[in-house]
Write a protein that binds this DNA or RNA. Structure first.
Lengths: 196, 196
DNA sequence: GCTAGACTATGACGAGCGTTATAACCAGAG
DNA sequence: CTCTGGTTATAACGCTCGTCATAGTCTAGC
């Protein structure tokens, strides 16, 4: 059965991103990823011959570009609209999963690489963060914020949202995300309205 | 040998906190914790009869109170001094470990509980975050910031610092922490009534 | 010195992991 | 029809995990 119909490779990547965001990189096993995507275990190594490292890397890139696409669209209506969309996106993921899911990019970032080499999954996480920061900083710059401050503000937004998602999961409450939402809005409004 | 000299129980807890902060909760095995603390594996279950769950919970509490103590001391010199100490503390941990270690409380917060019950380690993580927020908010309140805004600002500080530590690890650079340090200082200075 | 209780040492158990190998399927080309 | 190559299925490998059991070693108090 399975009446595949769809490209199972992308289902595997998306499922891996979801599972990593819930359980962390090490605890997200390939067997569970395959089961979650209704794909056989053998297919996983067929599509990702380099094993778990490759699968994790693609999962991180998948999440990074998916979030980046939403962010890019909403930033068309201005930095504040983009900020709100960014916050709402993560709030939805955290709350809809009953505080079980979070950000897969963050999950990969907090687990030590096994060797002294930088694993590609960690490099992909760095690129995802930088991509989101760049989008935000660029939008702020287009609205009159100086480049240095725009970069600092973008880092503040990404860092606080990532941290707040983890805090929400620990507390089983969306309060941290809601708190930083208020503060980020006023900070960005001030940067846009009044050249400090 | 071992010439114990010291209370090995605390060494185990401290070592567990360090290992969790590097590898994450699931990948920090009890065997490695014991080896890292130069304690035998059997002793681990002697001191922590409830197993890994108990050890993780105590490790999170240990880190939470240790950071809270430093934060409490430095806040005596005002909110900005406390903020700087909080940032410097995490910057030191991340940089001195060559971007391998982070915050054990964050590491526990991003891994899904195995059952539908809230494990005590996650509850301890929530308490650690709330403790740091309370210290910061109280200090801000004592310096004239309205309670609601003080709580929001404290959440922003904790969330952004936690998120930035993870971003620094991914990027192998302290830039995210340094960026948010600048922004948080100006935000808090503004809230305290000081002219930007 | 001797004995009780706290600690250490050692090894085993079932389970799950990443990974690989190999055989079976099953579409479409000739 | 046969043949072929992309996919699936199944089983096994060596390893590490959390946990437990059991026996040995130490140290205090009598």
């Amino acid at each position: 059965m399975a009446r595949t119909g769809g490209p199972s490779r992308e289902r595997i990547v998306a499922g891996a991103a979801d599972l990593i965001s819930r359980r962390g990189l090490n605890a997200a096993s390939i067997r569970e990823v395959a089961k979650h995507a209704e794909a056989p275990l053998g297919s996983t190594y067929h599509y990702f011959p380099e094993g778990k490292q490759q699968l994790a890397t693609e999962a991180v890139r998948y999440a990074g570009t998916a979030v980046g696409r939403v962010l890019s669209e909403e930033l068309g209506a201005g930095p504040v609209a983009g900020l709100r969309a960014f916050l709402a996106l993560w709030r939805g993921i955290v709350v809809d999963s009953d505080f079980r899911a979070g950000c897969p990019v963050l999950a990969v970032s907090v687990e030590e690489p096994p060797a002294d080499e930088i694993p590609p999954a960690l490099a992909a996480a760095a690129e995802a963060f930088e991509g989101w920061e760049s989008l935000l900083a660029e939008s702020l710059g287009e609205h009159g914020v100086a480049p240095d401050q725009a970069a600092d503000l973008a880092a503040l937004v990404v860092a606080s949202v990532e941290g707040a998602t983890a805090m929400c999961r620990a507390r089983h409450s969306a309060q941290p995300l809601d708190r930083i939402a208020r503060q980020l809005e006023t900070v960005i409004a001030a940067a846009l309205g009044r050249p400090a």
